[in-house]
């Protein structure tokens, strides 16, 4: 088996999920200069709701293909997460719009904790497993394997990212988002309802988070009320790596972080003579975060005057 190719494939697939989540961080930062640390929890809720609907449909014994069951779960999760993203901004962040910057940051952590606990109360502390209803055929390419699920995750992530870029670059609302990010007061003078644009940004990022939630839980086969914490931190790292506030940067940072993690996990055993194993995978994201913050805090694509869209 070709380890390099295999880890590259795994890394790109995982990275495309990180990228989807990182977009939520970066879009909100671009407009409000706020790190929405509750975003990882929105991903978790997306995964949990998808699984809840899937398991309910399975238990009810309806006779529809597995893909349709998952699609139904995803649609419900998207709707729930969009409502959640909207509510988080309205309830937790908007009242603090003019407060010192530490206040919304602490609030974000508070929202995280609340969401984790709500999820724990509803779904319990145990791991919830993803039923094996998705096609998992493995294809061989050049000595490495790629499953249907991996192909599906990667392609869907790319399609969503392309759609988002088109939305931001080419549409009226996208133009309003960029204008608001640069000069909210002037955007208001142009007739942009700045509050509506901010709500829209949260809703959009949360919809992507819901899809990412499905992807992660299907990929690892499990979901858990605490899964949002690590995912959120990694996606935040990806956003910082690409240059926070920069949409292309979030995509690049996500893919890159996925590959770095996966490569490191693939080779760490060899390098340390078996002393450290691939379960140390999670640690590399934080090496990356520290490295970026020390050596290039503006990220790969960020400049001092960051092109935010």
């Amino acid at each position: 088996m070709d380890i390099f190719l295999q880890q590259l494939i795994n890394g790109l697939v995982l990275g495309s999920v990180y990228a989807l989540i990182a977009l939520g961080y970066t879009m909100v930062y671009g407009i409000l200069e706020l790190i929405n640390f509750a975003h990882g929890e929105v991903v978790m809720i997306g995964a949990m709701v998808t699984l809840a609907v899937v398991n309910m449909l399975m238990a009810s014994g309806v006779d529809i293909p597995g893909i349709m069951i998952v699609a139904t779960g995803l649609l419900v999760a998207i709707a729930v997460c969009m409502a959640l993203g909207f509510a988080i901004e309205r309830i937790a962040y908007r009242p603090l719009r003019k407060a010192p910057r530490l206040a919304p940051l602490i609030t974000a952590i508070g929202v995280s904790i609340v969401l984790q606990n709500v999820a724990m109360i509803i779904w319990g502390r145990q791991y919830i497993s993803f039923p094996p209803i998705l096609p998992m055929t493995r294809h061989d390419i050049g000595g490495a394997g790629i499953t249907d699920l991996q192909i599906f995750i990667f392609v869907l992530a790319l399609v969503l990212m392309a759609g988002l870029v088109l939305l931001v670059k080419k549409t009226r609302i996208g133009r309003a988002m960029r204008a608001t990010a640069q000069a909210p007061e002037i955007a208001g003078l142009m007739g942009v309802n700045v509050n509506a644009v901010i709500s829209f940004t949260f809703i959009l990022g949360s919809a992507l988070a819901a899809v990412a939630g499905l992807m992660v839980s299907a990929y690892y086969g499990i979901a858990h009320y605490y899964m949002g914490f690590l995912l959120g931190l990694k996606a935040f790292t990806a956003a910082v790596l690409g240059g926070i506030g920069n949409i292309a940067g979030a995509m690049l940072g996500g893919l890159l972080l996925g590959v770095i993690e996966s490569m490191a996990a693939g080779y760490i055993g060899d390098i340390t003579g078996g002393f450290l194993g691939s379960h140390y995978q999670d640690v590399f994201a934080f090496f990356v975060l520290i490295g970026v913050l020390v050596f290039r805090p503006s990220g790969l694509l960020g400049e001092r005057v960051a092109e935010r869209a």
Partner: peptide, 26 residues
């Protein structure tokens, strides 16, 4: 009612045409 603010207030990272289109946003 339209205001041309002191110091112009253009959107520096939008193109010229995008700035003009922002004027027609409403």
């Amino acid at each position: 009612i339209a205001l041309v603010p002191e110091g112009r207030g253009i959107f520096g990272r939008l193109s010229v045409e995008e700035n003009l289109l922002m004027g027609a946003y409403s």
